[in-house]
């Protein structure tokens, strides 16, 4: 069960939730591009942005729930994201040449 711990009862707590909601809207927008995107590179860019937003959401979540160990997850996610994008780029390049 996830428990949202208020930051020492400070009144700015709801601002973090607003930030999380904005991240969520951005995530939905990029999923729309992932579904619609006319070509493969468009979809790769959309996946890239989704990964960025995931890292951002992890950071916000770790602040809101006061769990500092989640930052390690963000590091690993950033690492894998770059590898995935580079692999897709090599695939595109490879596919272009007969």
């Amino acid at each position: 069960m996830i428990q949202l711990v208020p930051l020492d009862n400070d009144p700015t707590h709801w601002l973090f939730l607003v930030a999380g909601a904005v991240f969520g809207i951005a995530l939905l927008a990029s999923v729309w591009r992932l579904v619609v995107g006319p070509s493969l590179p468009d979809r790769v860019v959309a996946v890239d942005l989704i990964g960025f937003l995931a890292v951002g959401i992890i950071c916000v979540f770790s602040i809101v729930t006061q769990r500092s160990e989640l930052i390690g997850v963000a590091v690993v996610a950033a690492l894998i994201l770059f590898l995935g994008t580079a692999a897709f780029a090599i695939y595109l390049d490879r596919r272009a040449r007969p």
Binding site: G20, A29, S30, V45, A46, L53, G56, C59
Partner: peptide, 13 residues
């Protein structure tokens, strides 16, 4: 950060 991410998503669309 949330604002920049939103700008990125709007640009993507």
């Amino acid at each position: 950060g949330a604002l920049f991410s939103l700008i990125a998503a709007i640009g993507l669309i």
